[in-house]
Structure formats: structure tokens, C-alpha cells
């Protein structure tokens, strides 16, 4: 029983990570079907057989077919969009603001044992932050 629980949990979490990280939407849909089947297995383990059957029929029978239909209707099956990285402009602005506000922490860091290394890293970070204009 517990072994089945851990098996289904591992399958669902790994396939959910594949859903988020897959480049192509088709691979994402296939991983989502695997995730839903493992969640149906969880329902059976929780003694909710009716919910498991309804879950399989509704999700992997209707919703996933709908997703695949829309993907193939709109020709979305090539990975076009790049991932949103940390290098976008808003994130750079937030990082710069955080680094420049770290100058305010410097008197608190002074009393620590490794204050020289911390101060040098903070100074370099704040110099880098002040070098690039907001």
C-alpha cells in the first residue's frame, strides 16, 4: 500500500516537472496524461473509486483530447517561445535595487567575524549595481 503510494507520488511529481519544463507542448500534454493517471491511482488508494473513474474519463478522456486538438489546430507543436529567464529587464531592475539596498546592511555586517570578505563582496556588488544605470 505504502509502496504504491510512493510509486504514484514519484510518477506524478516527475511528470509534473516534465509538464513545466518541456519545450514542446505535445510532450507537456503527454506528461500531463501520465500525471493524471497517477493521480487516479492515488484516488483508488484513498478508497474513492468513483472519483478515480470520473477523473480518468473527464481529464484524460476529454480535457487532454481538447488540449491536443487545440495544439494541432493552431500548429503550436513547435517550441517557439523561449523560457522566461532571470535576464529580463524587470528582474534586472529588482536585482539592482536589492544590491543597492544592501549598502544599508553594511554596518550590521561589520561586527561579524568574516566581515572583510563580506564587505568586499558587498562592495563589489554595490559597485556593479551603481555602474549600470537604473
Amino acid at each position: 500500500m505504502l509502496a504504491f503510494f510512493y510509486l504514484f507520488a514519484a510518477i506524478s511529481i516527475i511528470s509534473a516537472l516534465i509538464v513545466v519544463s518541456a519545450r514542446s507542448p505535445i510532450n507537456s500534454v503527454i506528461a500531463l496524461i501520465v500525471c493524471f493517471l497517477s493521480i487516479a491511482g492515488h484516488y483508488i488508494l484513498l478508497n474513492a473509486q468513483f472519483l478515480a473513474m470520473v477523473h480518468i474519463i473527464v481529464y484524460t478522456g476529454a480535457i487532454m483530447v481538447l488540449f491536443l486538438f487545440v495544439i494541432m489546430l493552431l500548429n503550436l507543436n513547435k517550441a517557439t517561445e523561449p523560457m522566461k529567464t532571470l535576464g529580463t529587464r524587470a528582474w534586472q531592475r529588482y536585482l539592482r535595487a536589492a544590491c543597492s539596498s544592501s549598502r544599508l546592511w553594511r554596518p550590521c555586517v561589520m561586527g561579524s567575524t568574516s566581515h572583510r570578505r563580506m564587505n568586499s563582496t558587498l562592495a563589489s556588488v554595490s559597485c556593479a549595481a551603481s555602474a549600470c544605470p537604473l
Binding site: 513545466v20 500525471c35 480535457i63 495544439i71 517561445e81
Partner: peptide, 18 residues
């Protein structure tokens, strides 16, 4: 939060419902 493809955002909504 981290994906921009709308269909993947819908799939993640399904994941949260589940």
C-alpha cells in the same frame, strides 16, 4: 509564473486543480 506559453499555463492550472 515562469512560462509564457498560454497552453502550458492552462495545463499548470489543471495541475493546481488536481
Amino acid at each position: 509564473v515562469f512560462r509564457r506559453n498560454t497552453i502550458i499555463i492552462l495545463m499548470c492550472l489543471e495541475l493546481m486543480f488536481n
